[in-house]
């Protein structure tokens, strides 16, 4: 379980880094000055340094990604029972969002903070669900292929 959790967290970490890069590209396109802004301009302004803002942004995204990886592992572990599974999923997702809440200063606007938490949790959960479905489909395809190969081998033997 620990090995699996580490593997999921590492995968999530890498996906988080990629999501951070994608976010920066989208922000740069939105700002539309012709320059690439790695960090969110508002974050750079709030912390007074673009480097610090960029480090915080990478940290927040990668931490959230790692937590999402562990949450996806909980989502797939049906053997744990629904209560443990749900609690583990929610706790890992919430812990993943703590740095985001701190960087986004959600405590200053409680309602907006709760709304942001719910929106991000919904998006992340649906993405994890879709990723699980895709993985399941590829597993089924692999099994089908294996069965097909088995048949071919048995036909050749005949």
């Amino acid at each position: 379980m620990k090995k699996k959790a580490l593997k999921s967290a590492a995968t999530g970490f890498l996906i988080g880094c990629f999501a951070c890069l994608l976010f920066s590209v989208l922000v740069s396109l939105r700002v539309n000055t012709g320059e690439f802004c790695f960090a969110l301009p508002a974050l750079a302004k709030a912390y007074g340094s673009e480097l610090l803002a960029a480090l915080i942004q990478i940290g927040v995204f990668s931490w959230l990604g790692a937590a999402c990886g562990i949450a996806s592992l909980f989502s797939e572990s049906a053997g744990l029972g629904p209560a443990k599974q749900g609690a583990g999923y929610l706790v890992s997702l919430t812990l993943g969002m703590l740095p985001l809440a701190w960087a986004g200063r959600w405590h200053e606007h409680i309602f907006l903070g709760i709304f942001s938490y719910v929106v991000i949790a919904a998006i992340v959960s649906l993405l994890i669900h879709v990723a699980g479905l895709v993985r399941l489909k590829s597993d089924v395809d692999e099994i089908r292929k294996a069965i097909g190969l088995g048949r071919e081998v048995s036909n050749e033997e005949k």
């Binding site: 749900g86 999923y89 709304f115 949790a121």
Partner: peptide
């Protein structure tokens, strides 16, 4: 259905409820 799907749909509903309130 996976736990992520169940919780995801619940959060979407909560999101709509929060939006109505907002």
């Amino acid at each position: 259905i996976s736990m992520a799907g169940k919780i995801g749909l619940l959060f979407v509903t909560l999101c709509f409820a929060a939006f109505t309130c907002f």
